[in-house]
């Protein structure tokens, strides 16, 4: 078999496994249900207003993505390698005439496709509800871009999860670390930055630069930029960013997210390829 077809076969197996993974199914259902609920709430708003702002529904969806997508991607990424090590299936897999690079890429591709399915389901359902409630986007490509950005965030978090998984032996440990990192990306990081900014009276330029270290923040800013074409909802620092970086701002966001997707995955592979304990 060529290595591409090996990767594809492994990816398919990973996709099948994801559907049997209770955590993955739970997150998917939770995401879809909450996305549905948020867009339904915008329908309730439409009853009052005759308007259901796409912007406002999208803002709720951004909030939801920030909360759930990192959790989902980090947990399944963290389980990826360590759980197979723990069960001993990894040794069996590596005893086959296939290379570690194929195993790694197959796993990554499979989980990335599972995440894509999960996101497409949630956003698809809420998209239908938004259309029916008359709060669809004035420009449909805005919605596609929102989903694409959410997917990029999930890939970044998946890579971080893979890195954790490559560094640990037990699934429980890697999932624990993953949950702790989730807390960091979603709550502690932002709270810390807010505190630092207040305590040190940071200039807004530095505050903005610091916020670029958190991929969740980067996703959020890119998503708002996509919907509003400005960042003035984010106050002085947002206005500063648009003025200072102008047209290249979106490119900066995308590059940052892409770095978060590529670098941890590369590190994870480097560790996985050189591990002696497999």
């Amino acid at each position: 078999m060529s290595s591409l077809s090996i990767i594809w076969t492994l990816a398919q197996k990973e996709l099948r496994d994801a559907l049997r993974n209770r955590w993955f199914v739970l997150y998917t259902v939770a995401f879809a249900a909450l996305a549905l609920a948020f867009s339904y709430l915008s329908l309730a708003g439409a009853g009052i207003a005759g308007f259901a702002g796409f912007g406002r529904t999208a803002a709720s969806l951004i909030n939801l993505v920030l909360l759930i997508i990192p959790l989902m991607a980090l947990t399944i990424g963290a389980q990826s390698i360590s759980s197979e090590l723990e069960r001993g299936t990894m040794s069996y897999l590596l005893a086959q005439p296939i290379g570690r690079v194929e195993v790694f890429l197959g796993k990554y591709l499979g989980l990335a496709l599972s995440l894509l399915a999960s996101l497409a389901l949630g956003f698809g359902i809420s998209g239908v509800v938004m259309v029916l409630s008359g709060s669809g986007a004035a420009d449909p490509s805005a919605y596609i871009t929102l989903v694409a950005l959410a997917y990029l965030l999930s890939l970044a978090m998946l890579s971080v999860g893979f890195l954790i998984s490559a560094l640990t032996r037990k699934a429980s440990v890697s999932v624990g670390i993953g949950l702790f990192l989730w807390l960091g990306f979603v709550f502690l990081g932002d709270l810390g930055m807010m505190g630092t900014s207040m305590a040190m009276k940071m200039p807004i330029g530095s505050l903005f630069a610091m916020s670029l270290t958190n991929p969740s923040q980067v996703f959020k800013m890119a998503a708002i930029l996509n919907i509003n074409a400005t960042l003035d909802i984010l106050g002085p620092a947002g206005v500063y960013a648009v003025h200072h970086y102008g047209q290249s701002l979106l490119a900066i966001f995308l590059a940052t997210l892409a770095l978060w997707a590529v670098v941890p995955a590369a590190l994870a592979y480097a560790r996985f390829a050189n591990r002696g304990d497999l």
């Binding site: 909030n63 920030l66 932002d190 807010m194 207040m198 959020k220 984010l234 106050g235």
Partner: peptide, 17 residues
């Protein structure tokens, strides 16, 4: 906090808020 530190608006929509 926003009224006193408008630059914190940068974290709008973040679950941390």
């Amino acid at each position: 906090l926003l009224a006193k530190n408008p630059e914190l608006r940068l974290f709008q929509l973040s679950p941390a808020t």
